[in-house]
Design a protein around this nucleic acid. Structure first.
Lengths: 297, 297
DNA sequence: TCAATAGTGTCTATGAGACAATATATA
DNA sequence: TATATATTGTCTCATAGACACTATTGA
């Protein structure tokens, strides 16, 4: 195991004399898309309140993008992985630990941060409403939960000799109690005979800092993609929940109504029934379920 | 639009006086898993040759991991995105351009590079055998295409009070004409009442540098995951191919035999038939198809 | 009593799996 | 003509979609 390199050094000797080069290095940050589900105001005592997906944003208190809203995030330290940096940020920002956390995508567009070269490794976190009530506002006075809406606006396909470009434009709307942000994000899929690639582009943007509209779009698409073949949505539920509540969460994520019977068949293996029921609803009580930890996937 | 920050500066003034902080920054590299499909030697003039997936590795000529095999890759420059860095690496290493290129995952384990702090943004590239013949060996004398095998070795599930850990151990075998590398990569899925996470771990490793066994495992899993619901496998095919050849590629990716009739139904919308046929096979000739660029996805 | 939701049964359409039957170039 | 693959037909089974029917609470 004591191989010598062209200078006659062992690996140990090499590492001892190794000096970091002088070339430029980027800052690496993590940006987090933290989702949770909240209930809207109920219309009447009988009717069920509607569910909303919300994302946590923080108003920027300094340049650049002063006054705009940004995803929580921060720089990765030399003593931690990007996963650990994301978990630390999440703890600092919301006080919660032990939640669903998933790496999304690494964004590195030139000039995405006007200060300096910053590459962002983005994450998605899912927090259930239980945890949220423990600690919400936190010290950051300028943090707020924004209701998310993400809808296809326009679909376009340009044909060329050797392929096509398909563009999907989505409208991202974010609304808090006082603020209303919106952006249009285009997803461009280029297909040629041999190559293929997808890229995001911000078409318009009102109120969001950096390229965070892209990151949020990416997170919503990941969430929508995974809802149908994993139990990911269950991380947005409290310990006990009814199947109708779970269905509401699926519906608000997918932005699409589902049929009750089919839905119940599909999630039946993801949940375990309990002997608890809802109380004081203006109608027949519903059985409460919990996430199935026995046989999920 | 001329908001002033707490120091009374406009955004422009702020950026002009902004100086990069003194904290430590990582090097950011891209590592590429470049897949292609080749034919094995035919048993007889009649029998079809078997397909193999291969991945490009480069023997390290210096410390660390001197003599071990590593994925092609390199550092990201301040003037390019990680996508561009990956495309540049690919061009430098194989001479090919315009291929399928997809970001996989960003690896940042502490100590993954013994020299210094390096974060790796990994990519997967798919090259069809056509392109490969144009330029294969290149200047890098110590580059070789390794046949890939990735099989589940062991499955384990530990139950705890509040959740479980499921471990899947895969054996990764890489073989070139002269070399035989192998590694065992574990995929650990931790599920608790509220949280869930997946992480890779290298259990054993013979011949691969850095954490590249993890990266290759990640790429194979991405490829397998996408084969069934996208046209990704078509990027591994030459311009014209028979449906049996395409099926062979699906089979070697999934490491599983498929039924002919069902397969043909499924891929029918991904391909377009041509008027060309195979010739001089010792049996009935097969119609050749090309990738469908009209309506893919 | 009735408004509103909870929960279940079942018919149908669709697609995957399985297997069989027929077709055809070349040594 | 035999061999090995090419191509298509169809039966079965599982699952998703659609819709309807019954159950149950609390104001």
């Amino acid at each position: 195991m004591d191989l010598l390199d062209k200078d006659g050094l062992t690996e140990r000797e090499f590492l001892e004399q190794y000096r970091v080069g002088d070339y430029e290095r980027p800052s690496v940050a993590t940006d987090m898309v933290i989702f949770t589900v909240t209930k809207a105001e109920a219309d009447s005592y009988r009717r069920l309140p509607e569910k909303e997906i919300r994302v946590l944003l923080i108003r920027r208190g300094g340049h650049p993008f002063l006054g705009k809203w940004a995803l929580p995030g921060g720089f990765v330290l030399p003593t931690e992985t990007t996963d650990q940096a994301a978990a630390r940020e999440l703890r600092e920002e919301t006080g919660v630990e032990d939640v669903y956390l998933e790496q999304l995508y690494t964004f590195s567009d030139i000039g995405r941060d006007p200060r300096t070269w910053v590459i962002s490794c983005s994450y998605m976190a899912l927090i259930n409403s239980d945890k949220l009530e423990l600690k919400s506002g936190d010290d950051a006075a300028d943090a707020a939960w924004f209701k998310v809406s993400y809808r296809l606006l326009r679909e376009q396909k340009e044909l060329f000799e050797d392929g096509y470009v398909k563009t999907l434009e989505y409208e991202l709307k974010l609304s808090s109690e006082t603020e209303e942000l919106s952006a249009v994000v285009a997803r461009k899929m280029t297909a040629k005979t041999t190559s293929a690639s997808t890229e995001y582009e911000i078409v318009s943007n009102e109120g969001l800092a950096f390229d965070h509209a892209k990151i949020i779009a990416c997170a919503i698409e990941r969430l929508r993609g995974k809802v149908n073949y994993t139990d990911i949505a269950l991380h947005l539920m409290p310990k006990l929940f009814s199947l109708t509540e779970l269905q509401q969460v699926y519906e608000v994520i997918m932005d699409k109504e589902l049929l009750k019977a089919a839905f119940r068949r599909k999630v039946s293996e993801l949940v375990t029934e309990t002997d608890h029921y809802t109380e004081n609803a203006g109608h027949r009580p519903s059985r409460l379920y919990r996430r199935n930890l026995e046989d999920t996937q």
